[in-house]
């Protein structure tokens, strides 16, 4: 597979607790991975929240593990830097995974980058860094809009604008879409359609109405559908069979 033509497809899920409606989010993340979509998760924690709430955030790690991505639990204040770090790491990890599966085809089943001597590993890593910088990125951001998140949404908004600064400093091309869950009518609502800039975000969050339920699983499923529809639509229009890189090869 030619990585240079490919597009990285990532989901960034921002939540503060446990899902309580619909499909199991961990299963949906595994499904996403099968589609070559990486799921990264950020769990937001309040500075003085009780201990039992922290345990609820265990789900955060489980989702990212099964989605082949990266997770991080943070206090609200550190959100900005974490959002960009997790996204970047998630991208690197996806590319790393693809290269590992390529290596396995060449060198045999149990070979990974870690098994190479340090000098060779350095060369491979340079390729990974290159790709992370130059590949196009399609990112769907899923924001938990359940009641407890209401006070944190201003910070989330700020951190997403910050993320846009980071990603648009890359050489590759970016497309973002923003979804909230639960939406007004459905489990998921598309707040911002595909756009190269996240500046329009300010108005998007004011439309949000926080609800009581947290349908995390259905939200991930909606993201998968969005990616697949987009892909087939584009193929229909342009006729080109653009390649997506599959992160499930490791």
């Amino acid at each position: 597979m030619d990585l240079k033509k490919g597009t990285l497809r990532q989901v960034l899920l921002i939540t503060d607790g446990c899902s309580n409606q619909g499909e199991d989010p961990v299963a949906m993340a595994a499904l996403a991975r099968e589609h070559g979509i990486t799921v990264n998760v950020i769990g937001i924690m309040e500075e003085n929240s009780p201990e039992y709430l922290h345990k609820g955030l265990k789900e955060v790690e489980d989702i990212s593990l099964s989605g082949g991505g990266v997770s991080q639990i943070v206090y609200t204040a550190q959100l900005s830097q974490t959002v960009q770090m997790v996204t970047r790491k998630g991208m690197t990890q996806t590319i790393h995974g693809v290269i590992n599966s390529e290596l396995q085809q060449i060198l045999g089943k149990d070979s990974t980058i870690e098994d190479l001597p340090p000098e060779k590993r350095g060369e491979v890593m340079e390729v990974v860094d290159d790709l992370g910088e130059t590949m196009d990125l399609e990112l769907i951001i899923l924001v938990d809009a359940s009641g407890s998140m209401e006070k944190k949404l201003a910070t989330v908004q700020e951190s997403l604008i910050d993320l846009s600064i980071s990603l648009n400093s890359r050489m590759g091309y970016n497309q973002f879409a923003l979804f909230s869950f639960p939406g007004k009518k459905d489990d998921t609502e598309k707040l911002i359609d595909w756009t190269p800039q996240l500046n329009s975000i300010t108005s998007a969050f004011s439309k949000l109405s926080s609800g009581g339920i947290t349908p995390t699983g259905p939200a991930i499923k909606a993201a998968i559908n969005e990616f697949t529809n987009r892909r087939s639509k584009r193929r229909l229009i342009t006729g080109d069979d653009e390649e997506y890189i599959e992160g499930s090869g490791f």
Binding site: E61, G68, V70, S71, Q72, I73, H96, G97, E114
Partner: peptide
């Protein structure tokens, strides 16, 4: 081996 760099660290 891939999961070394998830949040557990």
């Amino acid at each position: 081996m891939m999961m070394k760099n998830t949040s557990k660290g």
